[in-house]
Design a protein around this nucleic acid. Structure first.
Lengths: 187, 187
DNA sequence: GAAGATTGAAACGTCAATCTTA
DNA sequence: TAAGATTGACGTTTCAATCTTC
């Protein structure tokens, strides 16, 4: 960003005046951009090295593991993993090839595809989790005090809320989540 | 995420006890993960639709435009764009194909490759900037008060600082930035 | 026909290997 | 031989088109 493209708050656009960023917003935006580009890379690299799996695939296993029966319909999985149906389906295919998840049609409604975490998948997750949690602690939380953690949560939730209400999410091809699960994977 | 893989703060690892996340950290982490996955997608999609260019390529043009001569060595560009030399080189090639940047060897030291924003590239940037800035305002800053902007900047800078000091950045193949430009693209 | 999910091709990012200049 | 940069192959993500079930 350097979002304002600042070189010149150029000649105002003839028609309607653009709203440039305030200096403090500008600075925060540059910092945020750094996090947006670097942190996912670091998480991915670390996880891939420690566990041979990407951040997003890990997230899928993690989401599944939180269900009592370790099973969830594809669409809900996509929503909770903050992703598109397509991306989720591809990732599930990869995980299936490793034997860590299985697919089966929903017996009650054949349109739903149920994704299930296998025992091997669960065992893998258990082995990978401590290392990943340690990395998250080290990279994100060790440097934040209790107050900042609360602030971070509030700020992130504000942004996510805007994203949804202004139609920048979800991506095309997504169905409205079933039940009360709207918005962020926030619980 | 759901980083703790919470299903079970399982039997503690035999050797050394993993540090799970506190509940407030857990919640903040889920929120942050949502931002990490959704915001870049939204920025990319919006920019690609409004201007036919990706977020990262836009960032490159933007960084170049801030130099008085609209020119910068490849390595510095990579650092300021929060990226790897390889990714930056690929992106510059794409921009070059569009005629928006040019490459030329540094006359004084032939190892450096100077990247220059062309007039067409600058004109494009000027046309794309207002729309992009408006999106950033809408998605990120419209919902944050002055206090939160300051908090966000502090939190992001803390995370970036950790990333660097713990060796999770920069990516392999990067040279130490020239001069005082270490760390985040923070100004 | 609409909802849910998948597929394949194209675009992008990463990694390791290579090339060039100093 | 080291620094800076590039290249190509490979893996992942996106987008649009398709398939299946209701």
């Amino acid at each position: 960003m350097r979002v304002q493209e600042t070189p010149h708050k150029p000649r105002r656009q003839e028609s309607n005046e653009p709203r440039w960023l305030r200096p403090d917003q500008e600075e925060a935006w540059i910092s945020l951009t750094g996090v947006l580009l670097k942190l996912p890379f670091a998480l991915d690299a670390d996880l891939r090295q420690q566990a041979g799996i990407g951040h997003f695939e890990y997230l899928i296993l993690s989401v599944l593991s939180e269900r009592g029966d370790h099973t969830m319909p594809m669409g809900d999985l996509a929503t909770l993993a903050n992703s598109s149906p397509s991306r989720t389906s591809h990732a599930v295919s990869r995980l299936e090839a490793k034997g860590w998840v299985g697919r089966q049609q929903d017996a009650l409604n054949g349109r739903f595809m149920l994704v299930r975490l296998t025992e091997d998948g669960f065992a893998f997750l258990q082995s990978a989790a401590p290392g990943h949690v340690a990395t998250v602690q080290e990279l994100v939380f060790d440097s934040l005090d209790v107050e900042q953690v609360k602030q971070l949560d509030g700020i992130a939730k504000s942004i996510l809320s805007r994203l949804h209400s202004h139609g920048h999410w979800p991506p095309p091809g997504t169905r409205p989540p079933s039940g009360k699960d709207s918005g962020a994977a926030s619980a």
